[in-house]
Nucleic acid binder design. Sequence first.
DNA 1: TAGGTATATTACTTTTAAGTAAGTTATTGC
DNA 2: GCAATAACTTACTTAAAAGTAATATACCTA
Lengths: 104, 104
Amino acid sequence: MNKEITCPLHYTMTLIGTKWKPLILFHLLEGPLRSGVLQKHIPEISNKMFTQSVRELEKDGLISRKIYPVVPPKVEYQLTKKGCSLESILRSLDLWGGNENFNS
Amino acid sequence: MNKEITCPLHYTMTLIGTKWKPLILFHLLEGPLRSGVLQKHIPEISNKMFTQSVRELEKDGLISRKIYPVVPPKVEYQLTKKGCSLESILRSLDLWGGNENFNS
DNA sequence: TAGGTATATTACTTTTAAGTAAGTTATTGC
DNA sequence: GCAATAACTTACTTAAAAGTAATATACCTA
């Protein structure tokens, strides 16, 4: 945990309070995905931000990275238990965004 | 809605995918608050980011701003219907952050 | 040996978020 | 007339997020 955080929500935001991290986690809800496949699920993200975001999510224990020693390289990402515990939140955030389409 | 967004969650993140916006919304769940009181609920936020964030939340229709023509000035913020519809998500995000305290 | 494949990394730039600190307004009460 | 008050605004700076484009690896196949 960090220093001087008064509200648990504040801590949550330090882990996933960015534009791309929830998207990445969301697309892993259906199960592990190869790096390239996951990235194609989010065509708007740049290659750089994708790598940077998965690195940080891994560091924070929300996803894990599995490397297969083959050529060409194969890497799979999947949610950890901690990452999985965000499932209902991620689905709700997606549904909420969808409802907005109706409202506006 | 924005252009070229493939996933509803992406839209959600363009509205509240920052460090402070969910915090502000969260503290308004219990009802309207005066500007100063709301800000004191989030001591970590700077005056500037507070103003900037509430401006954007208002522009995006998540909160409303009520000005009382008195001296010294009195301004109240409250969630709009759209803002209120985030209630369960905001509470879940806060609970999730709280559980992390146990886990780590 | 050139091109393809998948997964990156690196260097560089731009944009956005965030912080610091001072100033503004319009009154009331001392 | 001056301090206090609440809610900002402005100017300036720093830090973080995000984008672009080129390069690296390491093998396979044509």
